[in-house]
Write a protein that binds this DNA or RNA. Structure first.
Lengths: 200, 200
DNA sequence: TTCGCTTTTATAACGGTGTTAACTTTTATA
DNA sequence: TATAAAAGTTAACACCGTTATAAAAGCGAA
C-alpha cells in the first residue's frame, strides 16, 4: 500500500504551494511585504501548517536564495560552455550574470541586496561555491603561462565578482539613468579592462 | 522675550535625543531591530512625540542617509584637495570611499545596502549629487586632452562608482575572507586599471 | 463498527511592530 | 483668572513572526 508515499506526495504539494504563493506575493508586492500570514491565506491553510514545512520565515527566504543561486550557476555554466577561450568565457559569464540580475531582479535583491548574506549563510549554499569555482578555474586558465601566473587567483576572482556586482547594483539603484545599451557597454568596458590587466 | 526661541531650542534637543537614541540602538542591535517604541523608551517620551518630529520611521532613516552622505562627501572633498593630479585624486577618493565604508559600516549599509535607495529618494539627497560632481569633474580633468576626450563622462563615473561599491559590498559579504592589506591591494589594482583605461 | 492512538489542522494567544485618534495635562496669553 | 493653544499620554488599530493548546481527522486493532 502506497499510503505513506501518497502522504509524502501531498506534503510535497503543500510545500510547493507555499513557495509558489510566496513567490506570487514577492512579484506583486516585493520581499519586504511578504508575510507568513498572507501565504497561509493564499494556500487556504492555517498559519502553523507553514511552520511544519519551514522552520521560520528566514528558512523560506533561504530556500529562494538557494533557488536563485541554482539558476544563476546553471546559466553561467551553460554560457561558459559556449566559449572556448578563457578571455571570451569571462566576457560571456559577465553578460550572463548581468542578464540574470535584470531578468530576476527579485532573486538578485534577495541574494545580494537586502539581508546581505553573511559568510555563514552563504557558505551553506553549495551553489555559491560552484559559482566561485567556475570563475576561478577560468581565471586560472587565462593567467597560466602568462606574466601574472603567480597572481592570487582568489583575489582576482573577488575583483571580477566585485566589478559585476557593483555594476549591477549601481544600475539597479538608478535604473532610469542609462539605457540598456549604454550599460552593457560599461559592462564590456570594465570586464575587458579586467581581462587585460590579467594577461599583460 | 526669547520664549519661542527657547521652545524651539527644546524641540531641537528632543529631536537630537531621538537621533542619538536611534543611533545607539543601531550600533548595538543593527538597523533591522530599530523601533520607534524602543526609541520612545530610551528618550523617556511617549511614542507620538517622535511623530511630531519625524513623519515616519522612514523619515528617520532618511535623515541618517543624509548624514551618511554628508560625511562621505566631506571626507572625499578633503581627500581630493590633497592630490593635485587627477589620476592620484581618483586613487585617493577610492581609498577614502573604502575607508568610509568600513569605518561606518552601519551608514554604508543604510545608504546602499538594505532599502536600496531608489532614484527618487537618492536624487532628493543633495549630497549625493555633490558626490557625483566631484568625481565627474576629476574624471573630466583626467581625460581632457587625452585620447578618450570624447568619452561619456557620466558612464565613466558609473563605472568608477560601480568598482568601488562592488569591492566594498563583496568585502562586507564575506569580511573574514581577505585581510585588509589584500583588499586594499585589490582596490588599488581595480582603480589603477580603470585609470589606465581612461588615459590610454 | 467502535475504541483508542497518532497525525494533521485550527484557534487563540504572546509579544512585538508602525501609526494614529482621542483625551489629558501643561503652558502662555488676553 | 478664564481661555485658547501647545505638548504629551493613553489606548487603540491593524499588522507581524512564532508557538502552546485544543480540536478534528485518519487509521489499526478489537
Amino acid at each position: 500500500m502506497g499510503l505513506v508515499e501518497r502522504r509524502q506526495r501531498q506534503k510535497e504539494e503543500v510545500r510547493n504551494s507555499i513557495l509558489t504563493a510566496a513567490w506570487e506575493q514577492v512579484l506583486s508586492e516585493g520581499w519586504t511585504s511578504l508575510s507568513i500570514r498572507k501565504i497561509a491565506d493564499a494556500i487556504e491553510y492555517s498559519v502553523p501548517v507553514i511552520y511544519s514545512h519551514f522552520a521560520s520565515k528566514d528558512a523560506i527566504l533561504l530556500e529562494f536564495t538557494r533557488q536563485g543561486f541554482q539558476r544563476l550557476i546553471g546559466q553561467i555554466k551553460e554560457s561558459a560552455l559556449c566559449e572556448k577561450e578563457p578571455a571570451e568565457r569571462l566576457e560571456g559569464i559577465a553578460q550572463t550574470y548581468w542578464q540574470f540580475a535584470f531578468d530576476n531582479r527579485e532573486y538578485y535583491q534577495l541574494m545580494f541586496g537586502l539581508g546581505i548574506p553573511t559568510c555563514e549563510t552563504a557558505n551553506h549554499i553549495v551553489e555559491m561555491r560552484q559559482f566561485s569555482e567556475v570563475i576561478t578555474t577560468t581565471i586560472n586558465q587565462l593567467i597560466a603561462g602568462g606574466p601574472n601566473a603567480d597572481a592570487n587567483v582568489y583575489l582576482k576572482f573577488r575583483t571580477y565578482w566585485s566589478i559585476l556586482h557593483g555594476l549591477v547594483s549601481i544600475q539597479m539603484i538608478d535604473s532610469t539613468a542609462a539605457t540598456n545599451k549604454q550599460s552593457t557597454a560599461v559592462l564590456h568596458d570594465a570586464v575587458s579592462g579586467f581581462v587585460k590587466s590579467l594577461i599583460h
